[in-house]
Structures are given as C-alpha cells and as structure tokens.
Computed example of a mutant assay.
Amino acid sequence: MSKLVTGAIVLASAILIGGTALTASASNSDIPPAPPRPEWVKPDGSVDKSKIPDSFPVMGSDGKPVLDENGNEVRERNDFHPDAPSGRSGDEGRVKKRWVEVDENGNKVEVAEVEPVSPVGQ
C-alpha cells in the first residue's frame, strides 16, 4: 500500500515540477489573456443557475464561433446545470488516513490512504 501512495506522490510531484518548468519557460507575450468571467459565475466562483444560458456557441479551432451554411452561429444546447459541490470524491468512506505534506519545492501535496476495492464482479 505504501508503494502505491509513494508512487502517487512521485507522480503528482513530477506533474507539478513539469508544469512549473513549462510555466517558467513561457514569456508573458506567449500567454494569451484569460477569458472574461461568464456573467453566471460570481466573483467567489459559485454559479448563479438562473443566469446560465440555454445554449452556448460552438467555437472553431481559431477561437471564433462556427457558422452554419446560412451564416447563423452554431449553438449547442445546454442540458447540464451543475449543482454545488457536495464534498470530496466518492472515496470518503474508505479513507483510513489523510494528511498534507510539503515537498522539496515547497508544494503542498495532499495524501490519502484508502482501503482498496475489488472491481465489480470479481
């Protein structure tokens, strides 16, 4: 079990270090500005469901809206209306121990030791 946890920590650290290196290597001119916050997302990050549109424009690889043969904007219906998060993932019942460690670069890494589960039908 400890090999699995150690492997997960090493993998998470490698991802964090790689992401930091990529971020550090890009200059500010290479990074496009962040898109504006949608009107249905509040400043605290919560969602106002009453303001979520019924459809969204389909965007092309050039970042511009896709148009149909008549020149109309192609839109995708929104059938997904997110609920507020209800806590952590489904591992809560199996967590034996949870702690936070700080790696050699000062990154905080959350570690959870969980009971293993057999796949269904085995």
Rank of each mutant, 00 (worst) to 15 (best):
M1I: 10
T6A: 15
T6M: 09
T6Q: 13
V10D: 13
A12M: 03
A14S: 07
A14T: 04
I17F: 11
I17S: 10
G18D: 14
G19W: 02
G19I: 02
G19V: 05
T20Q: 09
T20V: 01
A21L: 15
A21P: 01
A21K: 15
L22H: 04
L22I: 12
T23V: 11
A24P: 00
A24E: 07
S25W: 07
A26L: 15
S27K: 05
S27P: 00
S27D: 11
D30M: 13
D30F: 05
P33S: 10
P33M: 03
A34T: 01
P35W: 01
P35H: 03
P35Q: 07
R37I: 14
R37A: 07
W40V: 03
W40M: 02
V41L: 12
P43D: 11
D44H: 04
D48C: 07
K49L: 15
K49E: 14
K51D: 09
K51H: 06
K51F: 06
S55W: 00
S55D: 15
S55R: 09
F56N: 06
F56D: 04
F56C: 05
P57A: 06
V58Y: 05
V58H: 06
V58A: 11
M59D: 03
M59I: 15
S61N: 13
S61M: 08
G63Y: 00
K64F: 11
P65T: 02
E69T: 13
G71V: 03
N72S: 10
N72F: 06
V74S: 05
R75P: 03
R77W: 03
R77I: 06
R77T: 12
R77G: 13
N78D: 04
N78V: 03
F80M: 12
H81N: 12
A84T: 09
S86M: 06
S86D: 15
R88T: 04
S89D: 15
S89C: 13
S89K: 02
G90S: 14
D91S: 14
E92K: 15
G93I: 00
R94L: 11
R94H: 07
V95F: 03
K96H: 08
K97P: 00
R98F: 00
R98M: 08
R98W: 00
V100L: 12
V100F: 02
V100W: 01
E101L: 12
V102Q: 08
G106M: 05
K108H: 03
K108D: 14
E110W: 00
E110M: 13
V111D: 06
V111I: 14
A112D: 00
V114Y: 02
E115I: 00
E115Y: 02
E115R: 02
P116F: 02
P116Y: 01
V117Q: 15
S118P: 02
S118W: 04
P119T: 02
V120L: 12
G121C: 03
Q122R: 12
